[in-house]
Simulated scan of single mutants.
Amino acid sequence: MARLHSLELLPDEAGQAAVRRQWQALHDAGLPSQLDHRGASNAAHVSVVEAPALSSDALDVATARLGSLLPVTAVVGGVLLLGGGGGRVALARPVQLSDDVVRRVLAVRVHVPERRHHGWVPHLTLARGLDRSDVPRALEVLGDHDAALELRLASLRHWDPDAGEVTDLAR
C-alpha cells in the first residue's frame, strides 16, 4: 500500500503529554504502542483525511475552514477497536467534536475524492497491530487512562510522505 498524505489536527502540549502517557503505559506493558513509531513526525493527532495525494485546493480549504477555528475543544472517551479481518486491530480513543467542526471537516474531505476512507471516525490511535488476544490486557493497562479526557486541538498540519515533511498549516 502506498504511503498516504494526511491532514491532521493535533492537541496542544498538554494533550500530547496526556496521549503519550497512554502510549507509554502500553509500551511499558510490552504491548504495541504508537510510542514504538520512531519517525520524527510521530505525534498524537486526529486524522482529517488521508489520500495518495492532497491538492493545493484541499490544503487551502482545510486551512480556511479548520485553521480559522483553532483551537477547538475535543472530548476523548472510551476505547475503539479498528480493523477488519485477521488477528490484529488498532486500539484508539474516540474523539467527540462540535457539529461545526464536523461540518468543516466534511467540507474539507469532499475536496479529496481519492481519500482512503469514505466515512470519518474521529479518533486518536494508541496502538496498531495489537493482537486481538491482547485486547483485555491492553484495556487493563490503560485502566483509568480510559476516563474521559478534554483536549484542545490547537494545530493543523499536512504530512507529505513523498517529501518526508510535515508542514504546519495553522496554529
Rank of each mutant, 00 (worst) to 15 (best):
Q34S: 11
V61C: 15
G67K: 06
T73R: 09
L82G: 09
V61N: 08
P32Y: 08
S33Y: 03
H45W: 10
H45F: 13
P32D: 11
A29D: 06
A29L: 08
T73S: 13
R38N: 06
A51H: 01
A58R: 08
L31I: 11
V75D: 14
G87F: 04
V46F: 05
E50K: 13
G86C: 06
S33D: 00
G87T: 12
S41H: 13
V61F: 11
D57W: 03
A51Q: 00
V72M: 00
R65W: 06
D57N: 10
G78Q: 10
G78F: 02
G77E: 06
S55D: 10
D36L: 14
L80V: 02
R38C: 01
G85V: 15
A25K: 01
S33T: 09
G84C: 06
Q34F: 03
V76M: 04
D36W: 07
A44C: 09
P32V: 03
A58G: 12
L59P: 09
A62I: 03
P52C: 02
L54F: 04
L31V: 04
L59H: 12
V79K: 00
V79L: 14
H37Q: 11
A58I: 03
S47E: 02
S55L: 04
H27E: 08
A25M: 02
A43F: 10
D60H: 15
